[in-house]
């Protein structure tokens, strides 16, 4: 089985939308990795739902995240080895034609024909990440109306192990 990985890094003419400027320093212009101790667990449909508010202090550059009544403090961590972020190649019409052409070439004897060919794109090269490594601190009374409405929807799962 062969899986192609193509490089699709954003160039100067990129049409992808950029992140807010204060977040760019934690990743690339389009993408940032946020590491959490534990995981976000949600029940039901989560499409477009609010998780929390991310704030970057303009002076100290410290990120903080409010999730419901929990405050998380984060920091910037440089990665020892850069990470390439891969995204599954979506089946846009153009991609579909490519796949068909590949199948035609493979016609006849080939160990590959039975397998489904898929491809991935390298969409970003990340050298930094935002890490929230501490336990969330409960905050009482400071949550604005908007945030507390969404509070029951998401919570920080406890750290595994």
């Amino acid at each position: 089985m062969l899986i192609d990985i193509n490089i699709d890094l954003p160039g100067p003419s990129s049409t992808r939308r950029q992140l807010p400027p204060q977040l760019v320093q934690f990743g690339t212009e389009e993408l940032v990795l946020i590491e959490l101790q534990g995981a976000l667990e949600v029940e039901g449909n989560k499409d477009g739902q609010l998780v929390g508010k991310l704030r970057v202090d303009p002076n100290t550059k410290k990120p903080t995240m409010m999730i419901g009544h929990h405050l998380l403090e984060g920091k910037l961590v440089n990665l020892a080895k850069p990470l390439a972020v891969l995204q599954k190649h979506d089946s846009t019409p153009g991609a579909g034609e490519e796949d068909e052409a590949a199948m035609a070439v493979e016609d006849g004897y080939s160990p590959r024909t039975t397998m489904q060919a898929r491809s991935w794109d390298i969409i970003a090269m990340v050298k930094k990440k935002m890490v929230f490594s501490k336990r969330p601190m409960p905050v009482v009374g400071t949550g604005s109306g908007k945030t507390s409405n969404a509070a029951p929807l998401s919570r920080i799962g406890s750290k595994a192990g």
């Binding site: 807010p20 977040l23 990795l33 949600v42 989560k46 499409d47 477009g48 739902q49 609010l50 998780v51 929390g52 508010k53 991310l54 704030r55 995240m65 080895k81 850069p82 990470l83 390439a84 972020v85 891969l86 995204q87 599954k88 979506d90 991935w120 390298i122």
Partner: peptide, 20 residues
């Protein structure tokens, strides 16, 4: 800024991987 789940989380989940 507000951190939200993807509006199309069902197609996005599993569509990303990290390669060192």
């Amino acid at each position: 800024c507000e951190l939200r789940f993807s509006p199309s989380s069902s197609t996005d989940t599993g569509a990303f991987k990290l390669l060192e």
